[in-house]
């Protein structure tokens, strides 16, 4: 059943074209055999994809971004779960202030965070260290992690926990075998959204990344401001393909909308 008028469907097509055009053009240009940005009119070539792997800087940045995303998403989740339990379960003094504070990095422009972290990390001598960039990313992804975990804890039926306690389970056993399995969707969703946010972050990272801790988006940004060549297009295309694969898997096993809704607002 479709309740949309033909005009609405036309609008939809134009809108989708607008959304997909820049991504499609990247994927096309990536296959060019020429040495400059052009559509692959003389046949598809994989030469620029091969070129990515020959460039150690990009490969290093890619691994660094993966490592960074995994570590910062994991730390954020480990901190977000107890905080979410505190917010959902207890009415304590300062609750709303804490909550506002923990969600506030979303309100602060990333450029401001970048400026702040650069001064801070330089002062304490952690500029250019992996731990420094990880901690800055934890702050950026925390609100997303917290929000998704919180939504699953708030919707939780506490009777199951009470039942477990009445059966003699200790606090830890209750958490491990009752609470955690029930909030797992929120935890997984929060982790994935945190990872993606960290992996894609560029504005703040531009400030805190040093030559030895350059993330992939920062490296790509720096490259694009210098030159736009088929190499960067093929790298971008590769990232689009990976994202598509991840999206497909997430949608299959988890439901993409659940994660993406956490991204808005």
């Amino acid at each position: 059943m479709n309740k949309n008028s033909p005009l609405a469907l036309l609008f939809n097509i134009v809108f989708l074209t607008f959304m997909l055009a820049p991504l499609v053009i990247i994927c096309l240009v990536a296959f060019t055999s020429n040495g400059y940005i052009s559509l692959p009119t003389n046949g598809f070539s994989l030469r620029w994809f091969r070129a990515i792997f020959e460039d150690s800087q990009f490969v290093d940045a890619f691994y660094l971004s993966i490592k960074l995303g995994v570590v910062s998403a994991t730390i954020a989740i480990l901190i977000a779960v107890p905080a979410a339990l505190a917010f959902a379960r207890y009415d304590f003094k300062g609750r709303s202030v804490f909550m506002a504070l923990f969600l506030s990095p979303m309100m602060v422009p990333h450029i401001v965070l970048g400026v702040a972290f650069l001064s801070f990390l330089t002062t304490i001598g952690w500029y250019g260290t992996f731990i420094g960039i990880v901690l800055s990313h934890v702050i950026i992804v925390m609100p997303y992690a917290l929000r998704l975990v919180l939504s699953s804890v708030v919707g939780l039926d506490q009777r199951a926990e009470k039942a477990a306690v009445s059966l003699g389970a200790s606090n830890w056993v209750v958490f491990r075998h009752v609470t955690l399995p029930m909030i797992l969707p929120g935890v997984v969703g929060g982790w994935v959204l945190s990872f993606i946010t960290s992996f894609d972050e560029v504005t703040m990272s531009v400030f805190v990344a040093s030559p030895s801790t350059t993330t992939l988006p920062v490296k790509m940004y720096a490259h694009i401001t210098e030159t736009i060549d088929p190499l960067i297009a093929s790298l971008s295309a590769l990232m689009i393909f990976i994202t598509m694969a991840v999206m497909f898997l997430l949608d299959r096993f988890y439901g993409l909308d659940k994660i993406l809704v956490g991204k808005g607002k």
């Binding site: 560029v202 790509m220 689009i240 994202t243």
Partner: peptide, 10 residues
């Protein structure tokens, strides 16, 4: 889910 840098490049 795609980096802003990539979308801007497009």
């Amino acid at each position: 889910l795609v980096s802003v840098v990539v979308r801007t490049l497009g």
